[in-house]
Amino acid sequence: MRHYEVMVILDPSLEERTVGPSLDTYLNVIRNAGGSVEKLDVWGRRRLAYEINKKPEGIYAVIDLQATTEAVAELDRQLRLNESILRTKVVRPEVH
């Protein structure tokens, strides 16, 4: 089990209120694999430094979690399949 931090940029056309619950459903992957979600922090709409997919804004969310390598890799894969997710990043804060 390791501590991971996952950052997600979502499509700005989404409703901000629905972001938290919809991300939470993805996190069941972690919970089912025996990991735990420590924090889900939705930053809200934020201007991007450059356009991604022609979009000048994005909704940022940061998730702190404890999980195995495989569980996080699966979470990242599933997130990337969603078209309304512009970008993801997984970081282990202890090594970086």
Binding site: M7, I9, L48, A49, Y50, I52, G58, R87, K89, V91, H96
Partner: peptide, 10 residues
């Protein structure tokens, strides 16, 4: 890392 996530410009 920040550039990749569009927090800082390239």
């Amino acid at each position: 890392n920040a550039r990749e996530m569009a927090l800082l410009p390239y």
